[in-house]
Computed example of a mutant assay.
Amino acid sequence: MQRFAIVGAASEERNDAKHQFPFSPLVDVAKSREAARLIGVALAKKRCGLIVYDARFIEADVVRAYVAENPQPSDSGPPIVIRQPHADQIVPFPEEQTHPALFDRVADSSGRWEVSFYRSLAAADGLILIGGANSTAIAGQVAIGARVPVLALMKSGGAAETVWRTISPGIDLPNGNEHARMADDPSEPAATRWVEALESQRRRRYAVETGPIVWHAVLASILFVLALAAGFGSHLLPGLDASLAKAMLFAATLMAGVAGAAIRMVFERRYGSGPLVPPSMAITVALGLMAGALAGMLYIVAQPGDIEVAGDAALRLVSLITVVATVGGLTAEVVFRKLLGIDVLRTNGVAASGDPGRS
């Protein structure tokens, strides 16, 4: 089940500039509450779940409308997840008393609302901003930067309007049409389009972030197998011309380098240390080719005597060259950084013998 986080606030008291936490820009309370009601209905009809935080804010209106549509728990659990610090005084939603099976409270052990609030954004399939102030604005920027699907309802005012104005369609996840629809007045058709925009952003994000990685993994697998075939083939194929055997060995270093560069991207994304959007296949291939070839050639030229790919001793050489080229692709930036630091002409001595008067 997809779950969308509801973030925002709407109250006439906070439109007063003298309030301790005033809205800026002002929040249109009537439009905010109507948008919240319509969003609750639309999400329930789509069988999407909610992530909410506090019954004193705008999510109370969303939850009320959502529960009124009589949603049912799914195999993935209750559709409404409440994130709240463990130490905070619990303010229950009224619907928890009448429909307890629809709610799941998740308490954060840190005792700080900021921790439970901001960490929950990573678990959300999308973020819906209605009105609100500083925390809403920060949550919106976090979502935009992390390419989490975002719906900032411009007509609600407040931080949601501010976030809407900072979205760059086509650069950020929302496209131009979705960004324009966020400025619609609240209505049932508009609410349906809002939810569809979140789902479209989610599909787009998944396609952008997983598509290249799948192809990186496929490319790495194919080229690594071909590198092994070319490398060991140069040694094992009987009657092979010596020049052709060496050419096959060099080709193996190229393919192993690309395989290493490609599989590194897959590894980094698997463990969450890589960029949100991986480099294009062309960049991966170029870096892998150069790093693999350079690493392989540096190893070859470091060997004493002629390079022979026939005989029993050559099997170890072929294996090591293939491994070195693959590692070169895996650590491409280290290879290039090392090469950039090489002083080919040894100019440090020339620099030291300059004007003796400038010491």
Rank of each mutant, 00 (worst) to 15 (best):
A107C: 15
A310N: 10
V309F: 08
G354C: 06
F21A: 13
E13W: 00
I222V: 15
R346N: 12
A124Y: 02
A44V: 05
S110A: 14
P149W: 07
T210W: 15
P71D: 08
G329V: 00
E13G: 11
A314W: 02
A325Q: 02
T326H: 13
R202G: 12
E161S: 13
S24W: 11
S353R: 15
M182D: 07
V62T: 03
A217Q: 02
M248N: 02
L38W: 01
I167E: 05
P85C: 05
Y118N: 04
L151P: 00
A227R: 04
A282Y: 13
H235C: 05
V67P: 01
L219F: 03
G274L: 07
S200G: 10
L43V: 00
M297F: 13
D108L: 10
G131L: 00
I90V: 14
A261H: 07
S319C: 11
T326G: 13
N70T: 13
A17Q: 02
N177Y: 01
L127R: 00
G158T: 09
P169C: 12
E308M: 08
P304Q: 02
Y118A: 04
K246I: 10
S110C: 05
D16P: 04
G211I: 09
V225W: 07
G131H: 08
A190T: 00
H179Q: 14
R64I: 06
E308K: 08
T284S: 15
G231V: 01
P100Q: 09
L294G: 09
V309M: 09
T331G: 03
Y66C: 05
I130H: 08
V266F: 07
S200M: 12
A286H: 05
E69F: 04
V334E: 11
G357N: 10
A122Q: 09
A36Y: 03
I80H: 04
Y53L: 06
K246P: 00
R64G: 06
L340V: 09
A17M: 12
S109G: 13
